[in-house]
Design a protein around this nucleic acid. Structure first.
Lengths: 183, 183
DNA sequence: GTCTATACGAAGATAGAC
DNA sequence: GTCTATCTTCGTATAGAC
């Protein structure tokens, strides 16, 4: 059911992720919704955010210890997969919540996930020898640009914007990671 | 009323932009909503998108004829203004619709606006002497990264992500615009 | 845990008087 | 053009039986 919520949030947004839709998409039992999610819809959305957050971070862990360019490549692939596997229909769950949450606390929750992603990337770049300042800029820019690129490609129903951004980001990564950390 | 819809879309998303909310926010007459917007909510959203689209493009026209770096700076300032003037509460209307539109046609409508923004930026960079390929990459990346950066700063309630991305984009612009168009 | 039934409110939309 | 009234649908949430 949480996975179903993730899928719906990514493709239909918060509005489209009603209990009715999630249940219909997952053949879940109707009667026990508030047994499993006493906090109601907000809780379901939080759990979906956690799930998506962990999945992304687990994937990125595979790039630990590799050079900066490989870390970037892994990150781009992560988003390309989301986009291509969904036929350009899915976006980022965290973005969906950020932009559409009626609840202020949900937006903060999304913000915390962005922070965690950023810190993880900074760590990966730091291990690859990139100086702290460049690592932070690179991490934040990667996340921002991917979030935007996925949205553009989704709206335009074309992978071209996404691929253009990927190309530019690889170039940026080369520029920024030349500034290696002084030892 | 259209301006009110723009404000609500930017801060509350599509879900929060109900007729009731727009009316309350703008002291508009209740009775004539469907007189002015026979297409219902979808039409209101389309008009709001048009309004926001034109406003942004008009601002960017001021940078026509200037060097690439000035074009970039103008674009960054455009988004910084949105973010700061709203106390980190507003996002991009087009992003809001892309991510939350129940209607498929609205998403396409948003895509057209992204296209128009991209084409305008490509034109500005081309006039500044940047080669076509770099101009396209730079334009798409600028839009994507700003869309994402605004969302991150909004979610995290901090202007730091936004400013980090701005710094990185200026660096990228310098790299890409060195490739000048052969004459 | 899962069910049915139901309360409650919000939102989109329409009709018809003024 | 603007009003009021109303309809319908939907979504969240609760209550209580099994």
């Amino acid at each position: 059911m949480i996975e179903g919520a993730v899928r719906l949030l990514a493709t239909e947004g918060v509005e489209g992720t009603s209990f009715a839709n999630v249940l219909a998409a997952t053949d879940s039992p109707r009667g026990s919704v508030y047994h499993h999610f006493p906090g109601g819809k907000a809780e379901l959305v939080r759990e979906a955010l956690d799930f998506a957050c962990e999945a992304a971070m687990a994937t990125m862990e595979a790039a630990r210890g590799k050079p900066a360019r490989a870390v970037v490549q892994q990150f781009l692939d992560l988003w390309r997969e989301l986009l291509i596997d969904s036929d350009l229909r899915a976006g980022c769950v965290v973005m969906a919540v950020t932009v559409a949450a009626g609840d202020e606390s949900l937006r903060k929750y999304a913000g915390d996930i962005f922070r965690r992603w950023t810190e993880q990337l900074i760590g990966l770049f730091a291990e690859a020898g990139v100086d702290r300042r460049s690592a932070r800029q690179l991490a934040t820019t990667l996340i921002s640009a991917m979030e935007g690129a996925v949205a553009l490609s989704r709206a335009e129903q074309s992978s071209e914007p996404f691929e253009d951004v990927c190309a530019a980001l690889l170039r940026l990564a080369d520029t920024l990671s030349k500034r290696t950390r002084p030892k």
